[in-house]
Design a protein around this nucleic acid. Structure first.
Lengths: 186, 186
DNA sequence: GAACATTGTTGTATTATACAACTATATGGC
DNA sequence: GCCATATAGTTGTATAATACAACAATGTTC
C-alpha cells in the first residue's frame, strides 16, 4: 500500500512535469499555444460549438472560457454567433484562416504524437493508451466530490470542481488592504 | 493513424482536465496546495533537499522554484540552510510543523489514491500504473528537443524545456546590447 | 588572480484562473 | 401577461504560476 502511494505520487509528479511542457503561454506551433489548439480542435470537430459546452471540456469557470477564447477571436481564427435557439447563448466556429491553422497545427501535433508512440515499447501502444484512459477516468471519478479533510461539504457537483476550499492562505506579502467595495458602475 | 491522433488528443484533454483539478492555488488539505505538497513530500523523502534538485523535479526555472518554495518558508513548514559544501547553494528541510503537515496530507492523499485505485478495474491496478509510467516517459523523451515547425534549433537540452519559441505574441526582442554588461558588482 | 560558471533572488511582464457583480435573456407559476 | 428565479456570458478585481533578464555572491580554472 505504501509502495502504491509512492508510485502514484511519482505519476502525479510526472504528470505535472509533462503538463508544464505544454506550457500555456508558449506558442506550440503557428502562433497558438497548446491549450488554444485544444479549443480550435474541439471546434473543428463539432463544426459549431456552443460556448457553454466549452466550460466542461476545459473544466474551467465560464469567465475563464471567455478569456481563453478571446485571443483566438482577436487573431481571427474563431468567430462567434448568437445561438438561434437562445439569444443569450453564443456559438463558436472556425474562420477559413482558423481552419487552415487548425489543420497545420494538427499536422505538427501528429508528428509529435508519432514521436511519442515511437517511445512506447512496440506493440503496446494501444494497451498503454487504453490504460491512460482508464486512469484519467479513475481520477475524475475519484475527484468528484472528494473532500480530503472534511473541510466542507463542497457539493457543488461540478465534474472536477473542487474550488471553494479556502482560496489560498496567502497572508501578508502585499497588504493592499483595499478591500474595495463592489460599486455598480453605470 | 488518424484514430490514434484522436485518441491521443483525448488523452491530453483529459490530462489537462485532471491537472486543473489539482489546482495550484487551491488548498488541497491542511492549507497546502497539491503542488506545495509535492515539494514537502520531496523534501520528506530526502530529509535534506538541495534547492538545486528541485528545479528539475518541478521542471521549472530556478526563479520559479524560489517563488514556489517561499510560501512554505513563510508558513514555517520548511527551513533553509546553506550547503556546507557550497555556500551559494541552499538546502531545504522540514520543520517539525512541516513534518506534521506532510504526514497529515500524505494520509489524506493516500485516501484519495485509494479512491482512484477503486475506480480502476479490479486486478488491473498495476498494469495501469505501469502504463502511465511508460506514457509519461514517452512524452518526456518525445518532448526533449522536439521542434514542431522548425522554428529554431532549440538545442538548450533541458529535459522538458521547450521555451524560447516566440514567447507569446511578443515581437520586439530586446536588443542584443544588453549582453555583455555583466560585471558591476556592488 | 582574472575570466568564467553556477546558485539563488528580485524586477518585470504575461497568462491562467476564480469569484462576484452585472446584463440580457429565458422559464415556470400564477 | 407579470414576477421570481435561473442561465449564459462579460467584465472588474485579485492572485498564482511562470519565464526571462539582470544581479549578487560564490566557486573554478588556468
Amino acid at each position: 500500500m505504501n509502495e502504491q502511494y509512492a508510485k502514484l505520487m511519482e505519476v502525479f509528479t510526472g504528470m505535472a512535469q509533462v503538463t508544464r511542457y505544454c506550457r500555456q503561454d508558449v506558442a506550440f506551433c503557428e502562433g497558438v499555444t497548446f491549450h488554444q489548439f485544444m479549443i480550435l480542435d474541439a471546434v473543428a470537430k463539432r463544426e459549431v460549438l456552443p460556448m457553454n459546452d466549452l466550460h466542461g471540456m476545459l473544466a474551467v469557470e465560464k469567465s475563464t472560457t471567455t478569456r481563453l477564447v478571446n485571443p483566438l477571436l482577436q487573431k481571427g481564427l474563431l468567430k462567434r454567433d448568437k445561438s438561434p435557439r437562445d439569444s443569450r447563448a453564443v456559438t463558436l466556429f472556425l474562420t477559413p484562416e482558423g481552419r487552415k491553422i487548425q489543420q497545420r497545427v494538427a499536422r505538427c501535433l501528429a508528428a509529435f504524437f508519432q514521436k511519442i508512440n515511437g517511445n512506447i515499447p512496440a506493440g503496446r501502444e494501444d494497451e498503454v493508451l487504453e490504460a491512460i484512459g482508464i486512469f484519467i477516468s479513475a481520477i475524475k471519478n475519484a475527484a468528484a466530490g472528494f473532500d480530503c479533510c472534511g473541510t466542507e461539504p463542497t457539493q457543488t457537483g461540478g465534474l472536477l470542481q473542487k474550488n471553494a476550499i479556502t482560496r489560498s492562505t496567502q497572508q501578508n506579502l502585499s497588504p493592499a488592504e483595499n478591500k474595495g467595495i463592489r460599486h455598480r458602475r453605470k
